[in-house]
Write a protein that binds this DNA or RNA. Sequence first.
DNA 1: GCCAACGTTGGC
DNA 2: GCCAACGTTGGC
Length: 160
Amino acid sequence: MAERKYWLFKSEPSTYSFTDLLNEEDQTAEWDGVRNYQARNMMRDDMKIGDGVLFYHSNAKPMAVVGTAHIVKEAYADHTSWDPKAKYYDPKSNPDSPTWMMVDIKGDERFAREITLPEIKVNPNLQNMLLIRRGMRLSVQPITKDEWDEIVSLGNDVDS
DNA sequence: GCCAACGTTGGC
DNA sequence: GCCAACGTTGGC
């Protein structure tokens, strides 16, 4: 059994929020629309069933990690990539040779309180997160177990 | 709404 | 293969 890994997924809540995920049937959704090779490679090569996912709201008020999820289906072809009506349609991708991949995630729990970007920026234990690197725009990114533990612990403690 | 950072595209 | 132009991300 490989060691559990941890990830942070960004989403603009005006497009798709954590509430939207929890409202899905079985709280499970296809994470489609990723059109960045680095992110695609991580989904394809590194994400395994059971890996932990922090759900982060970008371009939001507030910008914050709002809850947890986990991987329930490992990488497979993102069928929206060859759908001309899809927002992230890519004419170079097709069912015979899919360029883009996605995973499925299942929402777990909403934090008792949101852990905001400003809070992450000043937390000495979270200074290595890609999230706070200038210009780091990866929509899915790896985090360490320590970072996961820290944010989950803060998120579940209303008094922290 | 602005714009810095960065990935992608396409002419050469 | 270089690199300028362009588009997007996403914090501010």
